[in-house]
Simulated assay, not measured.
Amino acid sequence: MRIVLPREGSRPLTVLAVAVAVAVAVLLGAVPAQAEPNEGGSKKLRDALAAAAKAHIDATAELKNSKGRQKELTTELKAVEVQLADLTAQVGEVAAQSYRLGRLGPVATLLESTSPDEFLNRAMNLDVMAQRDGRRVRELTEVRETAENAKVAIDSEIREQEKQLDVLAKNKKAAEAALAEVSSGGGSGFGGGSASAAPAPRNPDGSWPSESCSVNDPTTSGCISPRTLHMLKQSQADGFKRHVSCYRSGGGGEHPKGRACDFSAAPGGFENVTATGGDKAYGDQLATYLKNNASRLGVMYVIWYRQIWMPNTGWRAYSGGGSPAADHTNHVHVSMY
C-alpha cells in the first residue's frame, strides 16, 4: 500500500492546517488568561482608606511616644522624690540646730575663743557651716521645683494620650464608614504566625519619614519608595518569591506613588482565575506575613481574597466588583505608608 502525502496548496493540506490550528486554540484556551490587577473600588474610597490608615498610624506613633515620655518622667520623678526626702531631712536638722543654739549661738561661740587663732578658726568654721546650710536650702528649693515640673509634665502626657486615643477612635469610625462602600462587615482573616521582618528605618521620634517615588522598581520600569522596596525585599527574603508588580502609571491609589505592590498568587503571574489549593495557601500566608509585620514595614493596608486589613479595623469583608482581579482573589495587594 502506498501512502500519498498531501501536496502544498492541496485541499488535504488545508484541512490538516485547520485541524492543527483548532487543536492549538483549544490548548491555549486551557491556559488561564493573564490579567493586570484592577484594584476595584472608587478613587474616593481608596483616598478615604489611605487617609484613615495614615491618621491611625500617626496617632499610634504619638501615643507610643507619649507613653515613653511619661515612663521617663515617672522614673525621673521617683529619683527626685528620693533626693527631696534626703534634702528635707538635712534642712530639718539645720532648722533644729538653729532652734537649739538660738540666734546668738554663733556670737557666743566666737566669744568663747581663748586666743586670736582659735577665734579665726571658729569664724571660718561658722562661715563654712553657713554656706553648707544655705546650699542645702537652695538645693531643696530647686529639687522641689523639679519635682513639681515633672508632675506637670506627666499630667500633660496623660492628656496627650487621652487626645490620641480619641483620635484613634474617630479614625476607626472613618475607616469603617469608608469601608461600608465595599464591605458587608467583619472578615474571618488569615491567622497564624509568620517570620519577623527587619524593621524599616524610622525617624528618631519613631514616626515614618516622608518618602517619594525615588528608587528603581525592580518589578517594573517605574519607581517606588525606599520603604516599599524594603518591604518587597523582606517579603522575598522570607520566601514570597512569586511574580510581583509594584509601580503603575495609571489609576488611583498608591501604585502611581510607588507605595503599593501586587503579589500574584499563581507562580506564573496574574491569572484571571480565583486562586485555589496551593495558590490560595500562598496568598493566605503572604497576607498574614504583611499584616503581622505591618508596624515593622510601614504597611497601611492589605487586600486579599475578598478581605481587607487595616490597623484600626482588623480584617473586614471586601468586594471590589466581582472579577478575580477586582476582588483580589488572584493577587495580594499591599499599600504602604
Rank of each mutant, 00 (worst) to 15 (best):
N203Q: 13
D279G: 04
S245N: 13
K280F: 12
D279M: 01
M300C: 13
V215E: 08
T220M: 09
Q285T: 14
G277V: 00
G277K: 11
A275S: 13
S249W: 06
A266Y: 14
V215K: 11
S235Y: 02
M300D: 13
P199H: 05
D238Y: 10
S221H: 11
S245K: 12
G258N: 03
R227T: 07
S245Q: 13
G252W: 03
G253D: 01
C223H: 13
R296N: 15
D262M: 03
D217V: 00
A200Y: 14
L232M: 10
G253M: 03
T228K: 09
I224A: 06
A281H: 07
W208C: 05
N203T: 14
K241E: 11
S207F: 05
S207M: 08
R248W: 05
N293R: 07
D279S: 12
S194W: 09
L229W: 00
Y289R: 12
S221R: 13
H255E: 01
F240D: 06
P218E: 08
K280E: 09
Y247S: 05
L229I: 01
S221K: 15
G206W: 09
N203K: 12
P267N: 10
G268Y: 07
V299H: 08
K291C: 05
K291D: 12
P201R: 05
Y289L: 02
R242F: 01
E271Q: 15
S210M: 05
G269S: 02
Q285S: 15
T220K: 12
A275L: 08
K280H: 14
L232D: 06
S210N: 11
R248D: 06
K257R: 15
R259F: 00
R242H: 07
E211K: 06
A197Q: 07
S194Q: 02
A281K: 15
M231H: 11
T228H: 03
G277N: 11
P201V: 00
L297T: 11
P267E: 10
P267T: 05
N272V: 00
T276L: 02
C261F: 02
S194Y: 05
Q234N: 08
